[in-house]
């Protein structure tokens, strides 16, 4: 703490920064535990529902989003030190970042709507996407497929 201002003696605009190694390791442990917890959920889900379960998966994805945002918060706040900057600075980063909420919501909604439209009006698409295929032998799966095909 007391040595923080020595490094920036020629930079008057730069305020005093505190530096706390303990807080860094605490952040690291939080990130590690969250990641391990996420893995536990992901692996547990596939163990319990080998063929998938839509409702559980939706809930689980929601949990993953919340945990990911929590990790992002800790990285930005502690590692990137934003939490210790002044309020003006925090706001100039945080407010534009809120656009992401709209960005994500609008586009995922759009994707879902496209799926529903095709499933309602394009019988051929529905049948094709229900068709089961044999499991391919990995290692020489080089048959040409149409690159980038959306359907």
């Amino acid at each position: 703490m007391e040595n923080a201002h020595i490094a920036h003696s020629d930079n008057a605009a730069h305020g005093e920064h505190s530096f706390d190694t303990k807080a860094i390791w605490k952040t690291f442990r939080i990130l590690l535990y969250i990641t391990l917890f996420e893995l536990l959920l992901a692996i547990g889900y596939y163990e319990i529902f080998p063929t998938g379960n839509a409702t559980v998966k939706y809930i689980l994805n929601g949990v993953f989003i919340i945990l990911t945002l929590a990790k992002a918060f800790f990285i930005i706040a502690e590692f990137m030190h934003l939490r210790h900057e002044i309020r003006n600075m925090i706001m100039t980063i945080a407010i534009p970042a809120l656009l992401f909420l709209w960005f994500i919501g609008a586009f995922l909604w759009d994707g879902d709507s496209y799926k529903n439209l095709r499933n309602t009006y394009d019988r051929e698409h529905v049948e094709k996407s229900k068709e089961k295929v044999e499991k391919k032998e990995h290692g020489h799966g080089h048959e040409a497929q149409k690159p980038g095909a959306l359907d």
Partner: peptide, 26 residues
Amino acid sequence: NHQGAWWGRNPFNNIDGSAASTNFTN
């Protein structure tokens, strides 16, 4: 890549057993 995955080709099937497009690998 050794398993056959790359831009424009996808050796993995969907989780429900249907054929996957190349979107995943791309």
